[in-house]
Design a protein around this nucleic acid. Structure first.
Length: 241
DNA sequence: CATCCTTTGAAGCCG
DNA sequence: CGGCTTCAAAGGATG
């Protein structure tokens, strides 16, 4: 199985349970470290190193972790402010000096400061200016806030996601409506093999989504958003009668 | 500030 | 079963 998939599944499973139980007796840092330690036990060292994911990547792979990120960011132990007078015991991880919220480009290990996995990973304090929270903020109905589970993306959505940034930079198009039109053309002209890759990924994401949310189905979200006055099927042109 | 726009694909809904 | 509707992403535009 793809390592990223394993990471996503592990993060998701673990964080979801953490969210639901709000295990305040455990440090968010500890909770967030567990999936990484699990991964380390599953893969080779080189592969582990190659798994250094961007914070946004982790959130993208595992949206549920965003909740924990927010939760953790409010945890005094995770803040960039000076550590508490009495430092945690040796059972805790060592460094609390690295800010939790890191700018883009840093991997998720920056979340935790220095690692002690045989020195495999050493957090490098970023020199880049700190950016706001990388947590995705979507326009989403507030009704089910906190418990809203999004439907998994289909192949085309994954394609949009992977290509949007590139095309944005290439052509300087920032309007998503225009961009999506362009990308739909690219999608159609793409080889079946390439499309199949996205379809495989979409199936895998759907599978993980189903595993993590066994009680969820599309109907849970159905009708939760505002009703759009869809013009897709325009009324009859009404020719001369 | 919330919603629209715009796309494809998956799934729900309804007759 | 077929056709219509909704929602996934995303960010500028609009009301």
């Amino acid at each position: 199985m793809d390592s990223r998939t394993v990471l996503a599944a592990t993060c998701s499973e673990l964080t979801v349970s953490s969210i639901h139980t709000r295990q305040h007796d455990r440090s968010p840092k500890t909770i967030l470290m567990e999936p990484l330690d699990n991964i380390y036990s599953l893969v080779q060292e080189e592969e582990f190193n190659s798994l250094l994911l961007d914070v946004n990547d982790v959130i993208e792979l595992c949206p549920e972790i965003a909740d924990v990120v927010l939760w953790a960011s409010t945890d005094p132990l995770m803040s960039s402010s000076p550590p508490p007078p009495s430092p945690p015991s040796s059972t805790e991880l060592q460094s609390y000096s690295v800010p939790f919220l890191m700018p883009e480009g840093n991997n998720c290990f920056h979340l935790f400061g220095e690692r002690d996995l045989d020195g495999v990973v050493t957090a490098i304090p970023s020199e880049a200016p700190l950016e706001p929270i990388p947590v995705p903020k979507k326009r989403k109905r507030k009704e089910d806030k906190g418990t809203y589970i999004k439907k998994p993306p289909n192949a085309f959505m994954l394609f949009l996601k992977s290509e949007r940034k590139t095309v944005q930079e290439e052509l300087g198009i920032r309007n998503s409506a225009v961009l999506n039109k362009l990308l739909s053309e690219r999608w159609k002209s793409m080889s079946a093999e390439k499309r199949e890759a996205f379809q495989t990924q979409a199936k895998e994401e759907a599978r993980i989504h189903a595993l993590n949310n066994p009680d969820w189905s599309n109907k849970v979200n159905y009708g939760k958003k505002s009703k759009k006055s869809r013009t897709k099927a325009p009324p009859l042109p009404s020719p001369s009668c």
